[in-house]
């Protein structure tokens, strides 16, 4: 059953199981500080494909297959796949699942897509619409550059606030029944928050107010302090956005810093020239489905808030002068010891 707690938080009383998770990343991501925690690191960002879009779908497919395999399932055991990416019409995702023979729901939440998929997936499982489903998200530096910025060989300069789209994918299987210890307990769907940011090279700043809105709402609904959780992680605010979020919460007297991390800030090392940090749907998807859930399995994290953040914009909206809105969906994941 789904219970409403406070203003916006949903409590999934059956606490769906996170049966398995898997991550697949590109070369640069594999060379980063989290490299050892991913299930699959490709040597060739092209994944032996003809185009970057196919390369991205191959990466997402790898993560999906690994997740299904780890859950001990087979093709056809899933009731639905919820998948999304950054490309037009979710090209990377539909190409990845076109031969899956499984019902498919394309998701678009920009970089918050993984959180959106898990939140929606949790409700579907809790509501009985699906017994087992898979949520996945991916992004690829090269396919994103050509759609949102410039051709790869174009000589442009990145600003210090620009983020680096991660070549990465993550997938997780949710089920109503299981034997695992990791379970989804709460879900909060985010509102779009727009504060006039127009600089597409400063997406962290565009997303921070949405993360502030969602995390404040979650803490207040649950009557919780940040330290009631072992880790509160945002999707990919990057260094600039993470700093803004902490500052905004501090004005309300909330100190998030002891438990706070950001997937975009974690993914790349300072020497990797990623400027303000990683971004893209795959960034938070792979960091969650790699290091974070591994740490939960190992018992290092017992209560996690995963707040995926996305920037609502398109090349068209930016060219037409529209400001960039942020969005942030949150899920609470817990490890039970029983």
């Amino acid at each position: 059953m789904i219970e409403h707690i406070g203003q916006r938080t949903l409590y999934l009383t059956g606490r769906p199981y996170l049966l398995s998770h898997a991550s697949a990343v590109g070369k640069k991501e594999g060379e980063g500080p989290l490299g050892a925690y991913f299930d699959f690191v490709t040597e060739d960002d092209r994944m032996k494909q003809k185009s970057w879009e196919l390369a991205e779908s191959a990466l997402q497919k790898t993560a999906i297959h690994l997740a299904i395999q780890k859950a001990g399932l087979h093709k056809g055991d899933l009731d639905v796949i919820l998948a999304g990416d950054l490309l037009n019409q979710c090209t990377g995702s539909f190409l990845a699942s076109v031969d899956s023979d499984t019902p498919y729901l394309g998701q678009y939440g920009a970089c918050s897509t993984m959180a959106q998929g898990l939140a929606l997936g949790g409700c579907l499982v809790e509501g009985g619409a699906a017994r087992r489903l898979l949520a996945a998200a991916s992004s690829h530096f090269c396919s994103a550059e050509r759609q949102y910025r410039f051709p790869l060989a174009y000589g442009g300069q990145r600003t210090p606030t620009a983020q680096w789209t991660a070549t990465a994918a993550g997938a997780a299987v949710l089920g109503a029944h299981g034997t695992g210890r990791i379970r989804l307990t709460h879900v909060l769907f985010g509102k779009m928050v727009e504060l006039g940011v127009k600089d597409a090279n400063n997406m962290g700043a565009a997303m921070a107010p949405a993360a502030y809105d969602t995390i404040s709402a979650l803490l207040s609904d649950l009557g919780a302090q940040p330290t009631d959780f072992d880790c509160i992680v945002t999707g990919d605010l990057g260094h600039v956005g993470a700093d803004l979020l902490l500052t905004l919460l501090r004005t309300d007297g909330i100190d998030l810093s002891p438990v706070y991390s950001d997937c975009g800030s974690l993914l790349f090392g300072d020497e990797q020239d990623a400027h303000a940090g990683g971004s893209g749907c795959g960034c938070s998807a792979a960091v969650l489905c790699g290091p974070l859930l591994r740490d939960m399995q190992a018992g290092k994290i017992r209560r996690l808030v995963f707040a995926g953040t996305g920037a609502m914009m398109s090349p068209t909206s930016v060219q037409q002068g529209q400001p960039i809105a942020g969005i942030c969906h949150a899920v609470v994941i817990e490890r039970s010891d029983a």
Binding site: G26, E31, D45, C142, P151, L152, A153, Q272
Partner: peptide, 8 residues
Amino acid sequence: IARPKSRS
């Protein structure tokens, strides 16, 4: 003759 290459 050339094709784009991923960056690092």
